[in-house]
Design a protein around this nucleic acid. Structure first.
Lengths: 195, 195
DNA sequence: ATCCAAAGACAACTCCAGTTGCGTTAATTT
DNA sequence: AAATTAACGCAACTGGAGTTGTCTTTGGAT
């Protein structure tokens, strides 16, 4: 989705307007209620333009996802791996509870399940997130809290996985305690040398 | 979706035909390619009938899901918790690789993200699955392999979560080794007393 | 055996997501 | 600053998902 020929000016403005409109529509009506026409109307861009450049709803989401992937996110630094990893998982959990971010994030996950394009974008997003979050594990290793053999990214995956599993697969509520327990479990496994 | 007034005869035949057709269409074209019209044609039931009884695509999936929830599934019994839990997770993983079951299972997860009705059905499905799978953990406790304080269902959740997370959220491939490691991690946490 | 009501079949219709062809605007090139 | 052309806007069109009204079938009761 990189614009090569005419990056500046009108094209860029159109793209920004559509991206903004996509996020706004997503926050309001979720993935189900996202239509190309609504995004077009909201952005002030004609619907044929949107169809030609983004193809369909999944394309819109994939593009908006790239935007989100580049936003840095606040990795905790409490002084201990336990505090940091718990912080990371809790950050994920509370993000989905947020009335603003929640629907948008959920929409990303839903869209990626139906569109290879969105799936690739989401994959890249999580690659970046895993890298950033793995930092808390690496710091723990440096402090001697964890064995040097740990796979930092894998610890992060195992820590956050139960939150996503509950939310999007089993459709169970996820409490603060659930999130903390998931972080602790990943940590216990890391300490035991299995991750 | 329980039929009270006219359970036997034509209504039951129609329901079975539609359920079968839904599963077949799902296996062939996935969730994206599932349309009410195709299911109607394949089942030999008129499309208006399908619309009136199932409402939409999500309704079809929710109904098919109930069918799947009642099918028993082979809980491993290898003699050790480690072997059993690894078996459970590997069963989940390989299920999604199966060219027949994979698309259907994926469709269930995708549908549940967009339809409260399908979400409820999937929730019930996993409740049942967790109960059945927790058996391997409870046996482990009886053998003295795990502390009596463990939450058997939670161990199962933490064990299988990384597989679903990789598949449906991060969109990474899931190897046999990844599945085994996830099971081991849950077990290590359980032994450490955090689950 | 007859009757009744619930469920299904059928055809015609509506509506809106997505498409197409063409004219217009504006960003870039020379 | 004139020319070029990619990108956008516009209006009309298409197709198919979903709806509605009505008639027919059939399961079950009397």
């Amino acid at each position: 989705m990189d614009v090569t020929k005419r990056p500046g000016g009108r094209s860029a403005r159109v793209r920004d307007a559509v991206r903004q409109a996509t996020l706004a529509e997503l926050a309001e009506h979720g993935f189900r209620g996202l239509t190309v026409e609504n995004v077009a109307e909201r952005s002030g861009v004609h619907k044929t333009t949107v169809y030609r450049r983004w193809g369909n709803v999944e394309g819109l989401i994939a593009d908006a996802l790239e935007l989100a992937a580049h936003e840095p996110w606040p990795v905790p630094d409490t002084g201990t791996v336990e505090g940091d990893l718990r912080g990371v998982v809790e950050l994920v959990r509370s993000g989905f509870e947020d009335p603003e971010l929640g629907p948008v994030s959920s929409a990303f996950v839903a869209a990626a399940m139906q569109s290879p394009e969105a799936a690739r974008a989401l994959h890249a997003f999580f690659e970046a997130r895993h890298d950033q979050s793995a930092q808390v594990v690496r710091r723990g290793v440096e402090r001697g809290e964890l064995p040097v053999t740990v796979d930092a990214r894998e610890v992060v995956r195992v820590a956050v996985a139960p939150v996503y599993y509950r939310l999007f697969v089993a459709h169970e509520p996820v409490s603060r305690e659930d999130a903390g327990r998931a972080a602790d479990a990943a940590l216990a496994a890391a300490r035991a040398g299995v991750l």
